[in-house]
Nucleic acid binder design. Structure first.
Lengths: 130, 130
DNA sequence: TACACATATATGTAAATATCATATAGCAAT
DNA sequence: ATTGCTATATGATATTTACATATATGTGTA
């Protein structure tokens, strides 16, 4: 997410990323999609855009998949039966376990967000932000 | 948040941060606390721990406050009337506006998290993760 | 035919953020 | 004395993200 705020002091826009960005949120999204069916990197793009609320950087996606393979959450094989070669990823037992862990972790995050919301509503009862 | 997963391939634990970490979540928390009353950095620690779900790095807090002052969201003055000197921060008009923006942004994040949850429950209806 | 565009994977580089350690200094309690 | 708390701050490093670029093939179209 891109944040376009220009700072009052010097007019810079160096702080480019928006609030609400969850670090490596794309990873549980990938694991959830692969829980339904194995897929190759490019084929995940559309589903990830839905889950992440915006386009996912393609280069970042491929690097993430390799990292996840290194960590043992997915495995990959080359599929050469198609028009173009595809590296097809499959979720592992460890990947399932990690997805469960990530969901539980996000549950805690969700509670922190809602705690902020309730605090905000107390201070600004007339706000339409939420 | 610290994530202690050891990777299957090489046993490393290089990916240390847990899922669910929201980038710069501490900033709207600071602004909410300053909406109630002006405060100095060290005095914010306790309230921030509640809002962030864990201890906030003190060094990070001071750097964040300076950054927020540079961006015009808070102002600070030295309070020398006490036993120890304190730099007391006050939220600005721009800080109020930014907090509102951050809350609206987190509302979208909240929706993405819940979208993941509902997808997860479809694939794993018997899971106790959520 | 030439060109743009989509599919498919991947790397290079820079910026922003988070983490951990360290520095300074006064005060209180043991 | 020295340990611990209050209070502010910087240095160094690791991690993540964003944007650009590279490569190669297929598909549509002017």
């Amino acid at each position: 997410m891109i944040f376009t705020y220009m700072c009052k002091t010097c007019g810079c826009s160096s702080r480019s990323r928006d609030f609400g960005t969850i670090e490596r949120f794309v990873e549980p999204c990938i694991l959830l999609l692969l829980s339904k069916e194995s897929a190759h990197g490019y084929g995940l793009l559309e589903g990830l855009e839905t889950h992440c609320g915006e386009k996912v950087d393609v280069g970042d996606l491929y690097r993430t998949l390799r990292r996840m393979e290194h960590d043992g959450w997915v495995t990959s094989v080359w599929d050469k039966k198609n028009v173009r070669d595809k590296r097809v990823y499959t979720i592992t037992k460890e990947g399932h376990a990690f997805l469960k862990h990530a969901v539980a972790s996000l549950k805690q995050t969700d509670e922190l967000i809602h705690h902020l919301f309730s605090g905000y509503q107390k201070v600004y009862p007339d706000s339409n932000a939420i």
